[in-house]
Write a protein that binds this DNA or RNA. Sequence first.
DNA 1: GTCCATGTTCTTTA
DNA 2: CTAAAGAACATGGA
Length: 289
Amino acid sequence: MPELPEVQTVVDGLLPHVVGRTVHRVRSGPHDIVHPRGMLLDPRLVGRTISRINRRGKKIVFTLDDHARFVIHLGMTGQLTLDAPDAPVLSHTHLVLSFTDTTPTQLRFRDPRRFGGVWWLGQTEAPDEQMGPEPLTMRWVTLARHLSPTRRAIKTALLDQKVVAGIGNIYADESLFEARIDPRTPACQLTPEQVRRLCRAIKLILRRAIRHRGSTLRDYRDADGLEGGFQKLHRVYDRATLPCRRCKTPINRIVLGGRSTHYCTGCQVPLNFTATGASVDTAKDQSRH
DNA sequence: GTCCATGTTCTTTA
DNA sequence: CTAAAGAACATGGA
């Protein structure tokens, strides 16, 4: 469920209530969602103070006062919420950190499908090896450098966290609509102008989504258990057969890289268009290996 | 029962 | 060998 805007919203909700607080107790559910598997968090966390929380891609990085770190990834259905200790514990709650200094609070990790989990990093391991640039601050030439080596469809490339960090199925589709690029276009065939437009579109869409506290399709909740609002502003995602909000053409749904892909055949064109709307042939032959 | 789902990783295929 | 497609993971809702 959670892509960059949702993860950022969760982090923003945690910051004022968790940073600076000391872990008093750790409770785990019946399933081991900690990596490396079998590692006990209790002796590493109890008595430690959370000194920092930040986001990298879709990962939430917690730093302790001893400089050890751990990452929580929400996977598809993960929720990280702040609750009163006496609030009912929902099913599929896998980890509860209790803070008793000042107002008693619990940080709860719940994840029905268990694609998410906790990764202990210790004091040396980096949270983002292999991970691509942060989309909110990347420059278009960086994006171009990561797209040029692959012939995969641009939609598929955007989902690859080594290409860009934090984009998932919703915001890939929404960004490509904003940039008016056909999702099937081979990544290496985008013109510099298209990459520039895509880079701007990604930032615009992600910032707008963060402003609306992310998209809730089903499971996503912020740290306070509240739903996001950006799903109401989706232009293509989950809108197959509905009229395009821009040109009224029915939104098309196809499958790319095994993931449903939504786009407007009227607005998102496979080739470049000039200012007058005439199509321009850019099929420069990409020699086959 | 069937299909589908906001993600990632391993396996198979070309 | 590499790149890309496909399957797998686990659960629940339509």
